[in-house]
Lab assay of single mutants.
Amino acid sequence: TTVHVNGVTYHFPNPEEAKKFVDRVVKEAGLTVEVKGNQWDVE
């Protein structure tokens, strides 16, 4: 699973890890998340 955060790419072994990361980032920074298949874009 690939997560893009403001142009930076993070790779995770599974969607659960990616979701935990995204949830944390979104809570801390108040960002928006767009999910496209296995790819997350966070802005």
Rank of each mutant, 00 (worst) to 15 (best):
V3F: 01
K20V: 06
P15N: 09
R24K: 13
E28P: 07
E17M: 06
G7P: 00
T2V: 11
T2L: 09
G7Y: 01
E16M: 06
K20D: 08
D23A: 04
H11L: 05
V3Y: 01
A18I: 02
Y10D: 02
A18N: 00
N38C: 15
G37N: 11
V3M: 02
F12T: 00
T32G: 09
V5Q: 01
V3W: 00
K20L: 08
W40P: 11
V22C: 12
G30F: 07
V35M: 08
G30D: 06
H4W: 12
K36E: 12
G30A: 07
G37P: 08
V42G: 12
V33E: 07
W40T: 10
T1G: 02
V42F: 06
Q39F: 13
H11N: 04
V8N: 05
E17S: 07
V25H: 06
E43S: 12
E34G: 08
F21L: 01
F12A: 00
T9A: 13
V25G: 02
T1C: 15
G7I: 06
F21P: 00
E28D: 09
V26K: 11
H4E: 10
N14W: 01
P15E: 15
V42C: 15
T1P: 03
G37W: 09
K19W: 08
E16V: 06
N14M: 01
G37F: 10
V35F: 05
V8Y: 07
Y10P: 03
V26E: 08
T2C: 15
N38G: 11
D23M: 03
E28Q: 09
D23Y: 02
A29N: 10
Y10V: 07
N38F: 05
N6D: 06
E34L: 07
V42T: 13
K19Q: 13
V35C: 15
E34K: 14
V5D: 00
Q39A: 10
A29M: 14
V35L: 06
V3Q: 00
V8S: 03
K36W: 07
V33T: 07
F12D: 02
E34R: 13
N6G: 07
Q39H: 15
T9P: 10
E28V: 10
V26D: 04
D41F: 15
E16R: 03
H11P: 03
F12Q: 00
H11I: 07
V5N: 01
V26G: 08
E16W: 06
V25C: 15
V35P: 05
D23T: 03
F12E: 02
E17H: 03
G7N: 03
D23L: 03
E16I: 07
A18T: 01
D23I: 02
V26A: 12
E43L: 14
V33I: 12
P13S: 13
D41Y: 15
E43P: 07
V33R: 05
K19F: 05
V33G: 08
T32C: 14
E28Y: 05
V25Y: 12
K36F: 10
A29T: 14
A18F: 03
E28I: 10
G30W: 08
K19D: 03
T32H: 11
W40S: 09
T9D: 14
V42H: 10
L31W: 13
G7L: 01
E34W: 00
E43D: 11
T32M: 10
D41G: 09
Q39R: 12
V22W: 13
D41S: 04
W40G: 11
H11E: 06
G30S: 07
D23W: 01
N14Y: 02
E17R: 01
V8K: 14
V25S: 03
A29W: 08
R24D: 07
D23V: 02
N38S: 07
T1Q: 04
E43I: 15
T9W: 11
W40K: 11
Y10M: 04
V5P: 00
V33A: 08
F12N: 00
T2D: 04
N38E: 12
E28M: 10
V8H: 10
K20R: 12
V22K: 04
E17K: 02
V33M: 07
N6H: 06
P13C: 14
F12R: 00
V8W: 05
N14L: 02
T2E: 04
E34S: 14
N14R: 00
F21D: 01
N14V: 01
T1N: 04
T1L: 10
V25K: 03
E34T: 15
V35K: 08
G7W: 01
K36D: 12
T32S: 10
K36G: 12
E34N: 13
Q39D: 13
R24G: 08
E17F: 02
P15C: 15
V5R: 02
L31I: 11
V26W: 08
P15H: 10
H11R: 02
V25M: 14
D23N: 03
G37E: 10
V25L: 15
T1F: 14
L31F: 12
V3C: 13
G7E: 02
G30N: 08
D41I: 15
V33N: 08
T2N: 03
T1I: 15
A29D: 07
K36Y: 04
G30E: 06
A18Y: 02
T9G: 03
K20C: 14
N38V: 04
T32P: 07
H4D: 05
K27Y: 06
V8E: 08
V5T: 02
V42L: 05
T1D: 02
T2R: 04
H4Y: 12
V22Y: 14
Y10R: 04
D23C: 12
D41M: 08
V26H: 08
V22T: 03
P13Y: 05
W40N: 11
A18M: 03
N38D: 13
K20P: 00
E28K: 09
Y10L: 06
N14S: 10
G30V: 05
V22M: 11
T32Y: 03
G30M: 08
V5H: 08
V42Y: 08
V22E: 03
E28N: 10
E34Q: 11
N6Q: 05
P15K: 08
K20N: 10
A29F: 12
K36A: 13
K36I: 13
E43T: 13
H4N: 12
V25N: 03
T2K: 05
V3N: 00
V22D: 01
H11M: 04
K27G: 08
K19A: 07
